[in-house]
């Protein structure tokens, strides 16, 4: 006769919760240490007058968050960063979506694998090396000019390096794979029968693109856009190396604060201001997507 040691009734759910917590703990620990702690540290910095040093104690101030008011030129810089983001995202969408479409529909087997490899090849190389090689291509009498000259003697694109378009070229090259991959996932999931059904109903290519393929793959386009827009507005490598005197963006200004001006509080405050702007943008987009009627 077993002793009545255990209380009668259903076993408590604690084991389930404990197991879940145990599985989640490493991830949250990592997030806390690698992301939240440094962010919190930076937030603290952003409210100081300067980097605390033995002879320079720092006081608390909100001055740094007024940077855009005190230094109006920062607004132009912010606008340029935004323009970079929009141009890059737009071009990546224009080039990436058709590429993903071709990859998902027109190419099969070995050829598709090969093209996939080529698409993600930029990820295999160091970002810095990539951007530096663009300087060789875009420079006056660089590789591009020489290639053009080989086709039509004397044909050159002058002064392409150290301009806004040069930065955009470098950024599009770096971020295009994101768009291609996200759009590919969306497009490949489309049942080919849908397209045949549309054709059977009398639709031709333009209608199929606009009414079927584009709307259904919109999630892919949007996630690609987010993956590209957010890093680009904060980028500083491409602007610095390809932009010459035009390459002044929020990214380079913030980087300057940390490496040249040693004004960490200002750099931190600018970073958080940008973060707030991006979160605001997401909030608006998300709200708008919910408001739309189920159509």
């Amino acid at each position: 006769m077993p002793a009545e040691r255990h209380a009668a009734g259903p076993r408590p759910r604690r084991t389930g919760t404990a197991a879940t917590a145990a599985l989640l703990a490493p991830t949250y620990l990592w997030l806390a240490v690698a992301v939240f702690l440094p962010l919190a540290g930076m937030l603290y910095f952003s409210l100081l007058t300067g980097v605390p040093a033995p002879h320079h104690p720092a006081a608390f101030t909100a001055e740094n968050y007024l940077a855009f008011v005190r230094k109006p030129y920062l607004l132009h810089v912010a606008w340029r960063s935004l323009a970079l983001g929009l141009w890059t995202t737009g071009l990546c969408a224009l080039i990436g979506w058709p590429a993903a479409l071709a990859l998902s529909r027109a190419v099969r087997g070995r050829a598709r694998d090969a093209i996939f490899l080529l698409t993600i090849l930029p990820f295999w190389t160091s970002g810095l090396v990539r951007v530096l090689s663009w300087t060789m291509v875009l420079a006056d009498h660089g590789l591009l000019d020489r290639a053009l000259g080989a086709v039509i003697p004397g044909w050159r694109v002058s002064d392409l390096l150290y301009t806004f378009p040069a930065i955009v070229i470098g950024l599009v090259h770096a971020y295009l794979p994101y768009m291609i991959l996200t759009c590919y996932v969306s497009l490949a999931a489309i049942d080919p029968a849908l397209i045949e059904a549309a054709r059977g109903l009398g639709a031709r290519a333009p209608v199929i693109f606009a009414r079927i393929l584009l709307p259904i793959s919109l999630p892919g386009l949007l996630s690609g856009a987010v993956l590209i827009f957010v890093p680009v507005i904060g980028s500083f490598m491409e602007p610095r190396i390809l932009g010459g005197r035009v390459g002044v963006t929020m990214g380079t200004v913030i980087e300057d604060q940390f490496t040249q001006a040693f004004d960490w509080p200002l750099g931190a405050a600018l970073s958080f201001t940008m973060l707030a702007a991006v979160l605001l943008l997401f909030g608006v987009l998300y709200g708008a997507s919910r408001l739309r009627p189920a159509a």
Binding site: A193, E196, A197, R199, G200, L201, G202, I212, I216, A295
Partner: peptide, 27 residues
Amino acid sequence: VWRRQIGMVFQSYALFPHMTVLQNVLF
């Protein structure tokens, strides 16, 4: 295909998932 004036029903139905029933039929 789009000129043959045929109606086709597929094994997987191939309904347009992002449209309502009415929009599917109106297509």
